[in-house]
């Protein structure tokens, strides 16, 4: 899933400062799963904005609504009658949501309420970890099913750098050295030879380096 974290409330309050009517828009997709952008969090953020307004002597009219997904025009359409009545929309979906809203409602002010972090998953309750860099050409089968592009701090493709220590990356004791994991798994499986082969430079044409990406599936295009 796409993992996000809430923006500091002070940052959001700066965005909506002086506005009278604000809509907080949640999303039932990934951000609900990572406890940052669902109906519950929309309610909390809406209350925070109301309270902050009251402290300044302003009664801010804060609406709350949560869409099935914000990365789909079909669901974005659902708020077509209410968006125009607000001064601004704070979307707490990932970075896709506020952009789909901005495109569909060109007259609306749309603010991001979360910081979109990465593609990953929960490794323990309350702890999420990155797994995929979205490079567009998956190569994890060469590395025991683990991705050095996303998970090695230097995206090394031919083995661990000299900074690997006690299974951790040189940049932080909180970051696993993925190459340590790749090597150990290969040894456990008796397949170390697989890692001795030279992995040539990767083509980044399918990654963000190739420009903003788009995918077309002809059979689905109406």
């Amino acid at each position: 899933m796409i993992v996000a974290e809430a923006k500091p409330i002070s940052e959001i309050l700066t965005m909506v400062k002086g506005l009278k009517k604000v809509l907080v828009l949640g999303c039932k997709g990934c951000v609900t799963v990572c406890n940052v952008g669902g109906a519950k969090e929309a309610g909390i953020l809406a209350s925070s904005i109301r309270i902050a307004g009251r402290k300044e002597g302003i009664m801010v009219d804060v609406g709350e609504h949560t869409l099935e997904r914000q990365c789909d025009p079909e669901y974005i359409e659902e708020v077509k009658d209410i968006v125009p009545s607000y001064d601004a929309v704070v979307s707490i979906a990932c970075g896709v949501g506020p952009q789909f809203l901005s495109e569909r409602y060109p007259g609306a002010k749309v603010f991001p309420g979360v910081n979109t972090k990465f593609m990953g998953g929960a490794v323990a309750h309350g702890i999420w970890s990155e797994r995929c860099a979205g490079c567009g050409t998956c190569v994890i089968h060469y590395f025991g099913g683990m991705c050095p592009i996303a998970r090695c701090s230097k995206s090394l493709m031919n083995g661990p750098c000299g900074g690997s220590s006690h299974g951790k990356c040189e940049i932080s004791k909180d970051v696993d050295c993925i190459w340590d994991m790749i090597v150990r798994k290969a040894m456990d499986q008796g397949r170390l030879n697989d890692l001795l082969e030279f992995r040539p430079p990767k083509s980044w044409t399918t990654a963000r380096d190739g420009g903003p990406r788009r995918m077309i599936r002809e059979e689905l295009v109406k």
Binding site: G159, P160, G163, S164, H166, W179, D180, V183, L196
Partner: peptide, 30 residues
């Protein structure tokens, strides 16, 4: 370069071998 002391130790000599196979003429160790 080669660091014989970094982990995983077992792989270090193989990483050195990869560097040589890739074209290294000389190695300076950590």
């Amino acid at each position: 370069a080669s660091n014989p002391f970094a982990e995983p130790y077992e792989f270090r000599v193989f990483r050195l071998a990869k560097k040589i196979a890739a074209g290294a003429d000389f190695i300076q160790t950590q």
